[in-house]
Design a protein around this nucleic acid. Sequence first.
DNA 1: CGAACGATTGACCGGCATCAAACTCGGTGG
DNA 2: CCACCGAGTTTGATGCCGGTCAATCGTTCG
Lengths: 269, 269
Amino acid sequence: MAGVTESTIFSLAQRPFDCSSLCPDCSQRHCCPAFDLHSAGITPHNEAHNLTQNVVRAGQTVINAGERFSYLYMTRSGFFKSTFMDSNGDIQITGFHFPGELFGFEGIDTCYHSTTVEALETGSICRIPLSVLLSLTHTVVKGPFPQNDLPQGPGMLSLFKVMGGIIARDRAMIFSLGKMSARRRLATFLVDISNRMQRSGYDGDEFRLCMSRTDMANHLCLAIETISRLFTQLNDLDIINIERRHLRIVDRDALLSIVADNHPETVPM
Amino acid sequence: MAGVTESTIFSLAQRPFDCSSLCPDCSQRHCCPAFDLHSAGITPHNEAHNLTQNVVRAGQTVINAGERFSYLYMTRSGFFKSTFMDSNGDIQITGFHFPGELFGFEGIDTCYHSTTVEALETGSICRIPLSVLLSLTHTVVKGPFPQNDLPQGPGMLSLFKVMGGIIARDRAMIFSLGKMSARRRLATFLVDISNRMQRSGYDGDEFRLCMSRTDMANHLCLAIETISRLFTQLNDLDIINIERRHLRIVDRDALLSIVADNHPETVPM
DNA sequence: CGAACGATTGACCGGCATCAAACTCGGTGG
DNA sequence: CCACCGAGTTTGATGCCGGTCAATCGTTCG
């Protein structure tokens, strides 16, 4: 992070491009609203509305808390983390972002970002002006009932749905923090990570964890030591195989039964 | 709750009305999108788009999990709670709703409600068809930059902003559950309740808690006994005055310092 | 009045945090 | 090449917050 203070991403050379030139070849086009736009034949009409693609190195920030909200971001490659700082200066990692996932929504109500988004390793993102996305949401798709008309852009992607998904994920997190034991919380996290890795094109059963134990502990609101102890425990039970950051899911069913936790038949920690 | 099973609200007599007749006199018009609509001179154009006002008795449900999402609801009077049931049947109270507050958003992404909303005491709600609200969001207000154009209806109320607010509140809840002690969590809850009571027109310093200890405990993910112990403790410290459900905030500064928790100088429980 | 429910209070205990120390691994310089 | 260092991780010892179990009390209602 040496010398990187704020708005790192904007100090990098920006290569503007309109989506008609690069989107067709983008590896994430199947889940990108900008490509939806391209498919619909909508092209940005001025420079300010152009997409911008950028390379980000580990530790550099894409969004800084307090910044004005103008863009959403698509993860093209690499992994990112969103952090939130409360009034006491305590930091909470609110989420991780995998290739093919959008981020940067949390500023949409106040018009200012409340979180900082940082690259965990070298990766690249697409900066999509909000105005481009809004042209998607203004298309209203007729539902089965007149009351069910929802704003939906081409490709069925709409901001409402994505925001609804964020709310759903946050609710799951609330449930995790409030009602789950540390073991169940970690198992749930691993399954979620695994699923998202697979969706991003990786092997869901064997991959490299993109974040440190410290980041995991912070995100799950557990002590680092607890994470470490649980990892060795799950390793000894042959449920997972973990060495440093290399994770292999050996017994997915066992992991899922910890997640389900119908009858807490667990070995005490 | 005797005999009340599902979709209680729809079995009640519904009194349809268009907002031009009732909205002008509604006590919650200052924070209701339907009144915004009325002010803008937009009137529902058919029966399906009419607003519906209903009285709900304690224990009756307004929304049932699994129901199709077609309406949002404005709390006109009384208090409500939203509950969510997970796959194991565990119930989590996701929030309470006070007069003047909208609820029912959580189904917007899937088109089906995931939570059940129940009246804590006799109250009344307004059922607002989503289509009515959408006619608000289609108005785009120009921001200072072209990228900042946000969909905003008359009266500055837009679904985006409200959903953004929900996300912000959920994030606060995540922080509360993950990083706060039981005492700080309860204090935060009481301050929040107090502020919202005041916004709803009540005395923010002295009011009747609308929910049981059990509901509070569930919502804050604590044991009932912990809630009870903390209440007597705060009472003995002359920070609050609590007798059954009657709450008086005696020393708001002390309460706020527990919320801030800069230096945890707290008496162990 | 007794039953039922909600709330309070006490006794006890366990899960997880905290403190502390050792260990691994990669990098750096002598 | 090895010594050294520091960050990240693991492992052990200990303690406390808050959950669980259980008994009691107050209020409401049949």
